[in-house]
Each structure stands twice: as structure tokens, then as C-alpha cells.
């Protein structure tokens, strides 16, 4: 029963017709919410839940020579992904690139978040705009931009600048390596780290740091013992977002990583559209999802444990 209609019903007990009307309205209002939700429920069921179940079932079935998927059930595809060195390397590279990007984003993002949260209002606004701006440019355009900058020949922007500075004609060969993917991902996903961090930072009262300072803590100690622990909520959101987005990205590794640094997204695309091995593709997709969930859960657990460990140490 909806709360809003209760007083109306209580106010008019003698008139029977009005009571009936009120109860009808109550029933109707009780269902309004469900009615309003139904498009979303339908949408999610048809386009997310059913396909996911479909994919799950495909990943544990066998594909025959004709290409149709059916019994017997098997775990072969998952085993293959882990056992075949070629595929395992892709899995490990994906984890490595995503983790490196997330950690670098945290290191680079912290000072930027500090400017947004603590800096002069004008500076904060400018930095905020600069950080958010890449989000309005298509990821493909940005990736091609980085391709020009990192190009391995003498015409790459980095190499041109390098030769001005006297490092020789071609000093950096970065394009089509993991490093290029990391650089591109950092640029694209940095906002996802900076924004939650900045809001976390802005919520820490300045008096906490002042108190820590009067108690004899150096700036470094204040950062480790006060600022960072109080930023953990924002930091973990940022790490999770950057890791997830990097691990599941497809465009950036294709354009910047080339063939040498394949990530799971590329492998999945290959298996699904070139090899037509759909059960294996489904297995890769499921591994990607599970892996991302697992790494996020693990990092949250680790952060919490670190916090508690710090607490216990201080007690004894």
C-alpha cells in the first residue's frame, strides 16, 4: 500500500463509495511502480540476461564440424584458454596492462585530484575541464591521435621532439607495444580515476591535516597515515573503473597495440568473427567478466585488510 493514499482513506470512512475509490487507487498506485519499471525489466531480460545465459551455455558445449553448437558438455574451452601458451600469454598481458594502467592512473591522478579538490578555484576548474575533455572525443579519434604521436618512424611526434633534443633520428619505438596501449588507456581513462579521488579528497576536512601537523607528523607521514586512508573509497572506485575499462577495451589495443600485444578483447573478436569458434569465444568472454569481478573483489579485500592491519599495528 502506498503511504500517500493511507491518510486519504482514513479521512473518509463513512462514504462507502469513496472508500472503494481510495482502495482502488491504492491498488493502482501500488502497481504504478511496477508498470513504470517494466520497460527496463523487459529490456534487461531480453538483451542482457537471456544472451548471457545463452553465452554461458555455449561456453560449455561442443561445436561440430558443421558449426552447430550442442552436446556433449565440456570444460575444454576454458582449459584451452589457460593451457595453450599463446592464449595464456594474452590473458596475462591483459591483466598486466590493466593493472599497470590502473596503478599509473592512481599515481598520476592523485596530484591532479589534489589540485581539483584543494587548489585555487580557477585552477581547479581549468584542470577539471582538461581532465573531462577527452571523454567527449571519440575513443577511435583519440587512439589515432596517439598513433601519430607515438609513431615508430622519424615522423612520430615523440621522435621529432626527441631529435630536436638530440636523441637521434628515431629514439623511441613505442607504437605497437604494451606501453603504447598503457599510454593510450591512461589518457582515455584518467578522468575515471581523478574524479572519484577528487571528491574523496574534498571531503577530508583541512583541520585533520592541521591536527596531524601539530602532532608532529611530516607531510609524508600525513599523506600515508591520514590523507591516503581517508581517500581509499575514492581510490578504490578509481582503480576499479580504470582496471575494468582497460581490461575490457578493444579499440585501443587494436590501434596502438598491433598484433604483438594482443589483449583478450582482440582474441575474442578474432575467435568469434574470423575463426567462428563460438564456444571458445563465449569462454573468453566469461573469463573476462569473471576475471574483472575477481580482481576488483581482491583489490577491495586487500585495501580493507591493509586498513585493518594499520589499525592493529597502531593499537599495540
Amino acid at each position: 500500500m502506498s503511504l500517500a493514499s493511507t491518510p486519504a482513506a482514513a479521512l473518509a470512512p463513512p462514504a462507502m463509495g469513496r472508500v472503494a475509490a481510495a482502495s482502488w487507487r491504492t491498488r493502482f498506485e501500488g502497481q504504478t511502480g511496477l508498470l513504470l519499471l517494466s520497460p527496463a525489466v523487459l529490456f534487461v531480460t531480453v538483451l542482457l540476461i537471456v544472451p548471457t545465459l545463452e553465452m554461458l551455455s555455449a561456453s560449455i558445449q561442443t561445436q561440430d564440424v558443421a558449426g552447430s553448437i550442442g552436446r556433449p558438455f565440456t570444460a575444454r574451452h576454458f582449459v584451452r584458454l589457460v593451457e595453450v601458451p599463446l592464449y595464456r600469454d594474452v590473458l596475462v598481458a591483459t591483466l598486466r596492462i590493466a593493472a599497470t594502467t590502473a596503478l599509473l592512473a592512481a599515481v598520476i591522478g592523485f596530484p591532479i585530484a589534489a589540485v581539483i579538490a584543494r587548489g585555487h578555484p580557477t585552477a581547479a576548474r581549468c584542470v577539471n575541464i582538461i581532465i573531462v575533455m577527452p571523454l567527449v572525443v571519440s575513443i577511435v579519434v583519440r587512439a589515432y591521435g596517439w598513433q601519430l604521436i607515438l609513431a615508430n618512424g622519424p615522423n612520430g611526434v615523440v621522435n621529432v621532439v626527441g631529435s630536436w633534443l638530440g636523441f637521434g633520428r628515431v629514439s623511441v619505438r613505442m607504437l605497437y607495444t604494451e606501453a603504447a596501449v598503457v599510454v593510450g588507456s591512461l589518457h582515455v581513462f584518467l578522468a575515471m580515476m581523478v574524479l572519484p579521488l577528487a571528491s574523496s579528497l574534498a571531503r577530508i576536512p583541512r583541520s585533520l591535516e592541521e591536527a596531524a601537523r601539530t602532532l608532529g607528523a611530516s607531510s609524508l607521514r600525513i599523506f600515508w597515515k591520514v590523507t591516503l586512508p581517508l581517500c581509499l573509497p575514492g581510490l578504490s572506485v578509481g582503480l576499479t573503473l580504470v582496471f575494468t575499462l582497460t581490461a575490457s577495451s578493444f579499440v585501443l589495443p587494436v590501434i596502438l597495440g598491433g598484433n604483438k600485444s594482443q589483449m583478450l578483447g582482440q582474441l575474442l573478436e578474432q575467435q568469434a568473427t574470423a575463426v567462428f569458434d563460438w564456444p571458445f569465444s563465449a569462454a573468453i568472454a566469461i573469463v573476462m567478466v569473471v576475471m574483472i569481478f575477481a580482481v576488483n573483489a581482491l583489490s577491495l579485500w586487500f585495501i580493507r585488510r591493509q586498513l585493518n592491519a594499520g589499525a592493529i599495528e597502531a593499537q599495540s
Binding site: 583541520s207 591536527a211 596531524a212 602532532l215 607528523a217 611530516s218 591520514v226 589499525a311 597502531a314 593499537q315
Partner: peptide, 21 residues
């Protein structure tokens, strides 16, 4: 505003300056 460290217990708050020393 008291400026206590919200993530530390009472004992840890009191210990803060001593640990810094």
C-alpha cells in the same frame, strides 16, 4: 571541530603524535 582522525580508534588517535615521534 575536534579534528579527530575518523579512521582511527580512540587509542590510535591518541597514539598518533607519539608514533610520529
Amino acid at each position: 571541530s575536534y579534528a579527530l582522525f575518523p579512521h582511527l580508534t580512540v587509542a590510535q588517535n591518541i597514539a598518533f603524535g607519539l608514533q610520529a615521534r
